[in-house]
């Protein structure tokens, strides 16, 4: 059985909303294995996105620890976290979050270039082919459809060959058929490049395509499912 790649220990995230404390995450312990495809489902406000942000180092926990690929995130400063994100994590957001001034190709290779590396043109070409973006290489994001933007975001998440892909409702803005296409693509590509996927969704159909489903409610994992061997 392969090793875990993501681990959280008593992870808590509390917010102050006026005078009230909102417990977005309330003691989450999670283990995800290498090359596993995990779907996290829960209702709106259950804390699933917060969990994903903690795993990607986009937010800081109130308490608890996050370990990704052997690295403890809590000890890292902002710069280290940024470098960690561009090397270890590939994000896919519901709102795509593409850089508007960069064309599709530039968006895709953005994390690689930030690392001072020359993008592996062959590898990028392969991803563009797989994600059907070859024709749109020089297009600017505001001229793309939602599906194309989402595929660009996926391509960007894959290009730096990160160990883990964190996808936050990647199909939220897509129709059912496009949603299934995107997840299938994500799964295919991740398998091919041996990457771990943690996917947030509230759509049961989409969740069913994952190896394991984790249910989250009121900031707590209520059902973690059985760990699959990613291989």
């Amino acid at each position: 059985m392969s090793q875990w790649i993501v681990k959280t220990e008593s992870l808590k995230k509390y917010y102050m909303l006026g005078k009230h404390t909102v417990k977005a995450l309330d003691g989450v312990d999670l283990l995800v294995k290498e090359r596993e495809f995990v779907a996290v489902i829960g209702k709106s406000g259950s804390g699933k996105s917060t969990l994903l942000h903690m795993l990607g180092g986009l937010d800081v926990p109130t308490e608890g620890e996050v370990f990704v690929d052997g690295q403890k995130l809590s000890g890292m400063n902002r710069n280290q976290l940024a470098i960690f994100r561009r090397r270890k994590v590939g994000f896919v957001f519901q709102s795509y979050n593409l850089v508007p001034d960069l064309n599709v190709y530039e968006n895709i290779v953005f994390p690689v270039e930030l690392d001072g590396e020359v993008p592996d043109r062959e590898f990028v070409e392969e991803i563009l082919q797989v994600l059907h973006l070859k024709e749109k290489e020089e297009a600017l994001p505001n001229t793309l459809s939602g599906g194309q933007q989402q595929r660009t975001a996926i391509a960007r998440a894959l290009t730096s060959k990160p160990s883990i892909i964190l996808a936050d409702e990647p199909t939220g803005n897509l129709d059912t058929s496009a949603s299934h296409d995107v997840i299938r693509l994500l799964k295919t590509v991740a398998k091919r490049f041996q990457q771990t996927i943690i996917l947030i969704t509230h759509d049961n159909d989409i969740a069913q395509m994952a190896d394991r489903i984790i249910h989250i409610e009121d900031g707590k994992i209520v059902k973690a499912g059985e760990m699959h061997d990613g291989e």
Partner: peptide, 15 residues
């Protein structure tokens, strides 16, 4: 927001 997006992609403060 654009800056935050770029940071999420791994752009450091220095960059």
């Amino acid at each position: 927001v654009e800056f935050a997006v770029m940071e999420s992609m791994g752009m450091t403060q220095g960059q």
